[in-house]
Structure formats: structure tokens, C-alpha cells
Design a protein around this nucleic acid. Structure first.
Lengths: 216, 216
DNA sequence: TGGTTTTTGTTATAATTAAAACCAGAATAA
DNA sequence: TTATTCTGGTTTTAATTATAACAAAAACCA
């Protein structure tokens, strides 16, 4: 009787941080690492790290620590990085193009398989190793190749409409650079990559040092 | 006797979401909005919205709702968007250039005032309305103009070193596109804009639907 | 070998955050 | 005017998440 346990969202949010860090540590030829040392590297309390990892079994060895390569690969499998994820890009503007090129150079586990845009002037352009195709071809493409992930880099006005189209043809995860909150069904995940959100949060903390004051 | 209250981090994280949404709503000519309706638009429980806003005084009117323009401007002031924030970009690669151009077109409240790179081939290039300057000129520039925010778009190998330099000349907030966890003093804020983190989180949820299963 | 140190996995406690319930103004309509 | 309906602010309760404490392996050392 298989049973299922819900992993805390905050744990999942941290796994990529660990993964990224472990890759670097592995490249440096280090074989073992303690939660203590890893904690300093990723800026997370060691006991939080241990608890996060314990959700997925006994990944370390008491008295010793974690084997860097083993842990890295274990987290990779947990995240689903043992397979390659194809994804599409919608919106071949300057930002979209740069993201695609960047992915081509640095992307691991995720590879761009199609780029779509509405503007006929863009058709045929090479972006991230792919030719830009008209938006009309997107649904058939996504369905046929069973693609689950899309990057969205279109203007705000178009974003919601495009998101709707993406969902309709089976996309389940959207990384959106559009400056709006997308409305999607419950089983579709949206991550907001609009950097203005982060800049504004920065501005808050820089303005009033994390507090608000009033009174006399 | 002025006193200070700490606002929950989660509240601050949501304010930009509200702000972004209110701008859109305002453009549509809507003057009043209830926490209920706003909640649907931003995907947040109405009671959470009310509690978030209540930290900053009585921003709404019972039986009526919130005045869109008034609320938008109040949140703007809370976030510190009543002033313009100058920032610099370090790293004039493809990604950095695209971000700068994007900001030039869509950026509000944050304006790029300097671009720096180590590569002499980049010097003098126009990026986001600014000439690329050699990295050596950064410290004097930042100190003189009292700049607090930097965007970091350099390769992983350089990122930590650059972050250290930035901190040394007074930068207090970094929006980093580098795929590493930066180590900075406590009073410096770093936001991670490396989209691979989000892609990996997406991959997790798409892989196992938010759960992990094992057993017989 | 036995005791000491290290470090994990686990449990217990505390802090934070979200959700629900409820009260008090404000508008509306009979 | 008065009852009714809305809706924001406040308080209470519940859920989530982080921190601290500790017991169980593993290595190390005299």
C-alpha cells in the first residue's frame, strides 16, 4: 500500500540551493561535507538542512557528513533532474532572446525546443538554437512533443491570453517574466520572474530598514 | 517617542504583487476595490490582504473597500517608490544588456545610471542608455553617487568577488543573476534571480505532484 | 578495547504565518 | 428611521516552519 507524504514547500524551495552549491563543491574536489559547512555556504541553518534532507531518507552518515556526489545526485533525482526537460519560449523580444541564449550556454537539465512569437518579422530568426515560429504553430507543437514547461516573455497586455493558450495545450509550469499576476487553473504552476518585484522588495528594506515607525 | 514595529517578511513580499495589480486596475478606470476582488486578482486570501494592509494604518473604508489610486500610492510610499532609485549593472554580457534595455523600456522607480565590465572590448558600448565603463571605475562612481542597488550579471566564477567589491563601496542590495549563493554581510540584501532555481522547483512539482511516495 | 568526538536523524519547543471568526463603520433600501 | 447588507480591521485559532535539544551511529584516539 503506497502512501504519500507532503513535503513542505519551503524544503522544496531550498533543494535547488543545495544542488547548486553541491555542484560547485564537487568541482572543487571535496568529497564529504557536513550540514554545518554546507549551511554556511548556502546561508541556511544546519538543522534546517538536516531536516530537509531527512524527508527523503538517510542521505548522510552519522559522524561523517554527506558524500557530496551522492547527495548531489540524490537531490537531482528528487527534483527530477535525472531526465532532460524540454521547454518552449513564447516571446522573442530582447529579453526572451537573451534568456534563450543564456540557457543555451549555461542551461543544464532544461533545453529549449521551440520559440514562438506573434510578430511575423521575427519568424525564422535563430534564437537559442531554435527558429522562431508563428504562435499559431505552438499548440500542435506542444501537444505532439508533450512539453510541460514554458517560459513567458511577452508584454503584459498579451501575457494572460498567452498563458491561457499554453494551459489549453497541456503546459503545466510557466516561468513568467511578464509584470502581471497570471490567472491559471490549480494544477498549473506559475513562477514569477519579473525582477521588478525583487527590486521593490529591496527598496522597502533599504528605505526603512525592515521596520516602520510612527508615533510622536 | 517613536517606536518601531517589525512587519512580517511575507507581508513585504506580497506588497509588490498588490502594487503591480493595482496599477493595472487603475488603468482600467476602476476606482474602488474590495479585498475579496483584489484577492482573486493576485491569488491571495482576502483576509491575508486585509491583515497585510492593516499594518500600515486604516487604508480602506468599511462597507466600501479600498480606493484604488489611494491604496496604490500608499503602498508605493511604503515600498519607497515615491523616490527614484539609481542602480548600476555589473556585467555587460548578453543577459545584462537585455536586462538593461528592458529596464529602460519598462522600468519605473529604478533607473540605470552605470554599467561596468572587466572586458575592455565592452568599454564604451551603449547598454541601456549608458556607456560601459571599466570595473575599476565602479567604486568611485558608487561612492560619489551614493548608489545602494546593483544588478549582478557576471559568470559564477566572478560573482563572489564582484559582490565583495560592491559591498565594500556601499552597495546594500544586490539582485543577482549569478548561479551561486553569494556570501555578504548581514546588512546587505541579496535577491536571487537565477531562473534555474525556479525551473528546478517547477521540475520537482511536475515530477511528483508535490508528494513523494514509497513503501509497499 | 573503551572512551571521546563528531555528526546525523529525530523529537520537542518556539516562532512565524495563514485562515477563520467576529466586531464595527458605512452604504442601501424599505 | 431602522433593518439589512457590505466590507475593512482586529482578534482568535490553526497550520506551517524554524530552532533547539538530544539520542544513535560512526570514526578516532589513547
Amino acid at each position: 500500500m503506497p502512501f504519500r507524504i507532503k513535503i513542505p514547500r519551503s524544503t522544496i524551495d531550498r533543494l535547488p540551493l543545495y544542488y547548486r552549491c553541491l555542484n560547485l563543491i564537487e568541482e572543487h574536489g571535496i568529497e564529504e561535507i557536513s550540514s554545518q559547512v554546507l549551511g554556511v555556504r548556502v546561508g541556511v541553518d544546519p538543522s534546517v538542512i538536516r531536516k530537509d534532507l531527512a524527508w527523503f531518507g538517510e542521505l548522510g552518515k552519522r559522524g561523517v557528513g554527506y558524500n557530496v556526489t551522492y547527495l548531489k545526485e540524490a537531490i537531482g533525482r528528487i527534483l527530477g533532474l535525472d531526465k532532460e526537460w524540454p521547454f518552449i519560449l513564447v516571446g522573442a523580444g530582447k529579453l526572451g532572446m537573451a534568456l534563450a541564449e543564456h540557457n543555451r550556454k549555461y542551461g543544464r537539465h532544461f533545453h529549449l525546443v521551440g520559440v514562438f512569437d506573434r510578430d511575423p518579422e521575427k519568424f525564422g530568426l535563430m534564437v537559442g538554437g531554435q527558429q522562431v515560429s508563428p504562435m499559431e504553430e505552438m499548440p500542435a507543437f506542444v501537444k505532439e512533443k508533450d512539453i510541460k514547461i514554458a517560459m513567458l516573455a511577452v508584454p503584459a497586455e498579451e501575457a494572460q491570453k498567452v498563458a491561457h493558450e499554453l494551459v489549453k495545450c497541456g503546459i503545466k509550469g510557466i516561468l513568467s517574466y511578464a509584470p502581471i499576476t497570471l490567472s491559471v487553473p490549480e494544477d498549473v504552476l506559475v513562477y514569477n520572474a519579473d525582477y521588478n518585484l525583487d527590486l521593490q522588495r529591496l527598496a522597502y528594506y533599504l528605505s526603512n530598514d525592515g521596520n516602520i515607525s510612527w508615533g510622536e
